[in-house]
Computed example of a mutant assay.
Amino acid sequence: MRNFLIRWILNTLALWVVAQLYGGVNFAPGSTLADYLVAGLVLGLANALVRPLLLLFTLPLNLLTLGLFTLVVNALVLLLVAQATALEVVGFAGAFWGALLLSIVSWVLDVVFGDGAKVE
């Protein structure tokens, strides 16, 4: 349970950082902390449930592009999260670059807070 809460907070923090750094991804005006937390939760669920299915269905294309199609899948997941939450994404290009930046920010947060977020 502790690991779930840490991942949830890190996802929320990563979304907040991306929304601050990149204009293609932001939250609706007047968004509250609850909106950020819901978006972080939906992102975690989408990454756990939807993303693996998308990667499985696009496996031939992913192999053909040597894994680069994963960036497109990540953008699609971010667009899906935006449809379900107060997160706003400006087009597919905004989702693509936002997902790339979100991956980098998440990686940095994992490096900084990694020991507490790993499943034992």
Rank of each mutant, 00 (worst) to 15 (best):
residue 1 M to I: 02
residue 2 R to Q: 08
residue 2 R to I: 10
residue 2 R to L: 05
residue 3 N to R: 14
residue 3 N to D: 02
residue 4 F to M: 04
residue 5 L to W: 13
residue 6 I to N: 04
residue 7 R to I: 06
residue 10 L to A: 04
residue 10 L to M: 12
residue 11 N to L: 00
residue 11 N to I: 00
residue 11 N to H: 14
residue 12 T to P: 06
residue 12 T to C: 02
residue 13 L to T: 13
residue 18 V to P: 00
residue 18 V to C: 02
residue 19 A to V: 00
residue 19 A to R: 05
residue 19 A to D: 05
residue 21 L to I: 03
residue 22 Y to R: 07
residue 22 Y to G: 04
residue 23 G to F: 03
residue 23 G to S: 11
residue 23 G to Q: 11
residue 25 V to C: 04
residue 25 V to W: 02
residue 27 F to I: 01
residue 27 F to M: 02
residue 29 P to H: 10
residue 29 P to I: 10
residue 31 S to I: 01
residue 32 T to S: 15
residue 32 T to Q: 10
residue 33 L to A: 14
residue 36 Y to I: 05
residue 36 Y to C: 07
residue 36 Y to H: 15
residue 37 L to G: 09
residue 38 V to F: 12
residue 39 A to V: 00
residue 39 A to T: 06
residue 40 G to F: 10
residue 40 G to C: 09
residue 41 L to F: 15
residue 41 L to R: 06
residue 42 V to H: 03
residue 44 G to I: 01
residue 44 G to E: 06
residue 46 A to P: 02
residue 46 A to L: 04
residue 46 A to W: 00
residue 47 N to H: 12
residue 48 A to F: 13
residue 49 L to V: 12
residue 51 R to M: 01
residue 53 L to S: 12
residue 53 L to A: 15
residue 54 L to I: 00
residue 55 L to K: 12
residue 58 T to V: 02
residue 60 P to Q: 10
residue 61 L to F: 07
residue 62 N to A: 04
residue 63 L to A: 13
residue 63 L to T: 07
residue 64 L to A: 14
residue 64 L to S: 02
residue 66 L to E: 04
residue 68 L to F: 12
residue 71 L to E: 08
residue 71 L to V: 09
residue 71 L to C: 12
residue 72 V to A: 14
residue 73 V to S: 05
residue 76 L to E: 12
residue 78 L to Y: 00
residue 78 L to P: 01
residue 79 L to N: 10
residue 79 L to F: 05
residue 80 L to G: 14
residue 81 V to I: 05
residue 81 V to S: 05
residue 82 A to Y: 02
residue 85 T to M: 14
residue 85 T to K: 13
residue 87 L to F: 11
residue 87 L to C: 10
residue 87 L to I: 12
residue 88 E to P: 01
residue 89 V to R: 13
residue 90 V to M: 15
residue 90 V to I: 14
residue 91 G to H: 11
residue 91 G to A: 07
residue 94 G to Q: 09
residue 94 G to A: 01
residue 95 A to C: 02
residue 95 A to Q: 08
residue 98 G to Q: 12
residue 98 G to A: 06
residue 98 G to S: 09
residue 101 L to F: 08
residue 101 L to S: 10
residue 101 L to C: 06
residue 102 L to Q: 08
residue 102 L to K: 09
residue 102 L to W: 00
residue 105 V to H: 10
residue 107 W to Q: 13
residue 108 V to C: 04
residue 108 V to N: 03
residue 108 V to I: 15
residue 110 D to P: 02
residue 110 D to V: 00
residue 110 D to Q: 14
residue 112 V to D: 15
residue 113 F to R: 10
residue 114 G to A: 10
residue 115 D to N: 15
residue 115 D to Q: 15
residue 118 K to F: 10
residue 118 K to N: 09
